[in-house]
Simulated scan of single mutants.
Amino acid sequence: MELRGKQKRFLRSQAHHLTPIVQIGKSGLSENLLDQVDDNLERRELIKVTLLQNTDENAEEVAAILEETLHCAVVQIIGRVLVVYRPSSKAKFQKISLQVKVMS
C-alpha cells in the first residue's frame, strides 16, 4: 500500500491521541498476535502497536512483517511504537479511509 506525504501526515495527526492497543511481548510475533492486529485494523483502520521492553523483536523488522503479511502501511515508527493503517473492507468502519481517499 502506497501513501503520499499528505496522507501520511494526516494519519500521523489522527494517531497522535491514540493509545497503543496491541503489545508485542517476549513471545514475539505469533499467529494469534497477527490475527489480533488484523481484526483491530478491520474495525479501527488506524492503530498503534508497541514493543515491550522484554521482546527481542526490532521495530523495523516488525513493520516489514506486518506490511507483508497484513497488506497494511506502517505510517510511523517512533522508538518502540508503530502506527499502522489499513482501510477497512466494511463500509460501516470506513471513517478515516474516506478522508484519506479525498487527499489522493
Rank of each mutant, 00 (worst) to 15 (best):
M1G: 07
E2H: 10
L3F: 08
R4Q: 11
K6S: 14
Q7M: 14
K8S: 12
K8N: 13
K8P: 00
R9N: 13
R9K: 14
L11G: 07
R12Y: 04
S13D: 14
Q14D: 02
A15Q: 03
A15I: 03
T19H: 07
T19I: 04
T19C: 00
P20V: 03
I21F: 02
V22E: 02
V22Q: 00
Q23Y: 01
K26W: 03
K26G: 09
E31M: 01
N32A: 06
N32S: 15
L33F: 04
L34V: 10
D35R: 08
Q36H: 05
Q36D: 15
D38I: 00
D39W: 02
N40R: 12
E42W: 01
R43L: 14
R43Y: 10
R44G: 05
E45A: 04
E45C: 14
V49F: 02
L51E: 01
L51M: 06
E57I: 09
A59C: 08
E61I: 06
E61H: 02
E61G: 07
V62E: 02
A63F: 06
A63V: 10
A64E: 12
I65R: 06
I65S: 07
I65A: 13
E68S: 14
T69H: 03
L70P: 09
L70G: 05
C72S: 13
A73V: 13
